[in-house]
């Protein structure tokens, strides 16, 4: 198993030089093997994605051709999507909704996860199980009660109406609780002795230690809301309030779908998610440095 190679070698004494050289060679070899294996695996992974991108540049009649390179390269589907539909508006709606939801989830879920991991108050376990239990009912069965609530409160066809069921996520609370459990209590107690109040301990001491988890949470919350379909479909009535997945659903009809348009729309829709991923991925990598410094 090549997964762990010795690091921190520089601190070894010169008497172990031979061992180090051997390690280096081995490491170089395993690095190359690893790159090759991961590259091959990665290519298999992204194959359907590449096919999607390539299809978005094909003419409707070429959509089903097996070749990865479009027989006739065309931007028509992009043109249709961008000019003849309200794609830009839908895109903006989704961006706004996903961003606000992500910020809200990142804050509240971290706070709740931290509380459930580090505070032992009466009822904490019950609250945790109750929150977890909310993951156990499929969304499809919740939309009608939500819709009735939205009508009651006049939230239909509004951004808030689309957002409200997702501004705090049980999934994220669970994730953050798991990660906060790894934060040493001594650190928090030390801060208490220094006279920090509890919120400040959370915000200044605990939260920075779980940055990788927060970053992962942000990626997935953004993505989840970016792709959310069934609830926005129900709560939105007007064309200008549609989110991207709801808008794209209009490319499908009773007797088939406009795959060329779906491919173009879906390809464009991956751009912001990939950007979000790149931004937050850096945070996950930065996590190493922090964890390394900590001890």
């Amino acid at each position: 198993m090549q997964v762990q190679t010795a690091t921190g070698i520089s601190s070894l004494s010169t008497t172990a030089q031979k061992q180090v050289d051997r390690n280096k060679r081995r490491r170089k070899f395993s690095q190359i093997a690893l790159v090759v294996v991961l590259l091959l695996g990665g290519l298999m992974m992204i194959f359907p994605f590449v096919w999607m991108i390539s299809s978005s540049f094909k003419r409707p009649q070429d959509i089903y051709s097996l070749s990865l390179i479009p027989p006739v390269f065309t931007l028509d589907s992009y043109r249709t999507v961008l000019n003849d539909t309200s794609y830009v508006r839908w895109f903006t709606n989704s961006l706004l909704i996903a961003t606000i939801t992500t910020l809200s989830v990142a804050f509240f879920d971290s706070l709740a996860g931290y509380t459930l991991a580090k505070f032992k108050f009466p009822g904490a376990t019950i609250i945790f199980v109750l929150i977890l239990s909310t993951l156990m009912v499929p969304t499809e069965m919740l939309v009608i009660p939500w819709y009735m609530l939205s009508i009651e409160l006049r939230w239909t066809d509004s951004y808030w109406g689309v957002m409200f069921p997702g501004v705090i996520s049980a999934f994220g609370v669970f994730l953050m609780r798991q990660f906060f459990m790894g934060v040493p209590n001594e650190l928090l107690d030390a801060a208490r002795i220094d006279g920090f109040n509890e919120f400040r301990i959370f915000w200044k001491i605990a939260l920075p230690l779980v940055k990788p988890a927060v970053a992962a949470l942000c990626i997935f919350t953004f993505l989840g809301n970016w792709n959310a379909y069934i609830w926005p479909l129900i709560v939105i009535r007007s064309e200008e309030m549609r989110t991207l997945p709801v808008g794209v659903a209009f490319f499908s009809s009773e007797n088939g779908a406009r795959f060329d348009l779906i491919m173009a729309a879906a390809s464009l829709a991956t751009i912001p998610v990939i950007i979000i991923f790149i931004i937050f991925q850096k945070q996950i990598i930065k996590g190493i440095a922090l964890a390394g410094l900590k001890g």
Partner: peptide
């Protein structure tokens, strides 16, 4: 004139009608 996607047609009608719309 209200339009909605063909997919999930009846789900949309059901939600609206149960809510009294």
């Amino acid at each position: 004139h209200v339009n909605f996607p063909y997919d999930d047609f009846r789900q949309q009608v059901a939600a609206a009608v149960q809510a009294g719309e």
